[in-house]
């Protein structure tokens, strides 16, 4: 929160955390201090279920380039799935 750059997005999905699978209902996307990645700031995504407490979290800490590649890859996969009539 040194940067205060954060956005939340509601989502549907499941994630596997330290306690096993749980239903996720939100992703918190921030550009702020990571906990583990060796950078001062990182693109952090926390997939969470806030109703289940702070431990219901799957954490991802990405470099800028990796985050952009991930976004493009997700879009590309969805586009291909759509083009083949799967979505």
């Amino acid at each position: 929160m040194c940067t205060m750059i954060v956005q939340k997005v509601s989502l549907e999905g499941c994630g596997k955390g330290a306690g096993g699978w749980f239903d996720m209902n939100q992703a918190n996307v921030s550009w702020d201090h990571p906990f583990h990645a060796p950078q001062e700031h990182a693109l952090n995504i926390d997939f969470v279920n806030a109703d289940q407490g702070p431990s219901a979290r799957i954490a991802v800490e990405l470099s800028v380039e990796s985050a952009r590649q991930l976004v493009e890859t997700i879009q590309a996969v969805l586009a291909e799935a759509e083009s083949r009539g799967h979505v």
Partner: peptide, 19 residues
């Protein structure tokens, strides 16, 4: 106020709220 868990998990919840 964010509850208890590992310091990182609790801090992540605070980070999501902008502190």
């Amino acid at each position: 106020r964010y509850g208890h868990g590992t310091p990182e998990d609790v801090a992540a919840a605070a980070r999501a709220d902008g502190g």
